[in-house]
């Protein structure tokens, strides 16, 4: 019995580790750009950590900003977004973090600290981008697998349809 439970717990922990690896892969290769940048009505929140893809995207945003033709002042009725002053990321992170720290005043008990050791990091609703990918479906990317599942479902339940809802993992109602 103990051996079975050990295997189950090990499997669970390895699954958590696998997800963490996927997450880490998507957030490595950081650049050192700490600026906010705006283009049209899109504002990029400052970010100390950016992936290589993000770095390229920021470069494109900046390039398009430079190429943009100047607009006469008289033509501007009300800009959707003002050009935002560049601020140091560290300052802003500190200020934004104040909201969180104010809510975390209660010190953790020893029992809670012990629990935290065994508690896997929960995937929050806004972190489910990877889980929402088609490759994360039980059948994976193989269309035959989905077809097979639908065949089994329709033969077992005597009904079909209702399987085409996309976008799993976002925590939607």
């Amino acid at each position: 019995m103990l051996r079975i439970m050990l295997w189950v717990s090990l499997g669970f922990l390895s699954a958590c580790g696998h997800y963490q690896n996927l997450k880490d892969n998507s957030t490595r290769q950081h650049s050192s750009s700490n600026n906010r940048y705006s283009q049209n009505n899109i504002v990029l929140i400052n970010s100390a950590k950016k992936t290589q893809k993000n770095h390229n995207a920021v470069a494109q945003l900046k390039a398009s900003q430079v190429k943009a033709s100047p607009v006469k002042v008289s033509q501007v009725k009300k800009p959707i977004v003002k050009r935002i002053k560049i601020r140091q990321a560290s300052d802003q992170n500190k200020s934004l973090a104040k909201t969180k720290t104010a809510k975390n005043k209660e010190p953790q008990s020893h029992w809670e600290k012990l629990l935290n050791l065994f508690t896997p990091e929960k995937v929050k609703p806004w972190q489910k981008a990877i889980l929402a990918k088609a490759s994360m479906k039980p059948g994976g990317l193989n269309p035959d697998s989905e077809k097979f599942n639908q065949k089994i479902y329709s033969s077992k339940e005597s009904s079909r349809g209702g399987l085409g809802v996309a976008g799993g993992g976002c925590g939607c109602n």
């Binding site: 504002v43 990029l44 925590g171 939607c172």
Partner: peptide
């Protein structure tokens, strides 16, 4: 999209709000 859009790749803003579902 005819409104201001903030790109939050580091998810700092949503980490403050911590909604239980998306969209929020």
């Amino acid at each position: 999209l005819n409104f201001r859009v903030f790109m939050d790749p580091e998810q700092e803003l949503i980490d403050i709000f911590e909604p239980l579902g998306m969209p929020a």
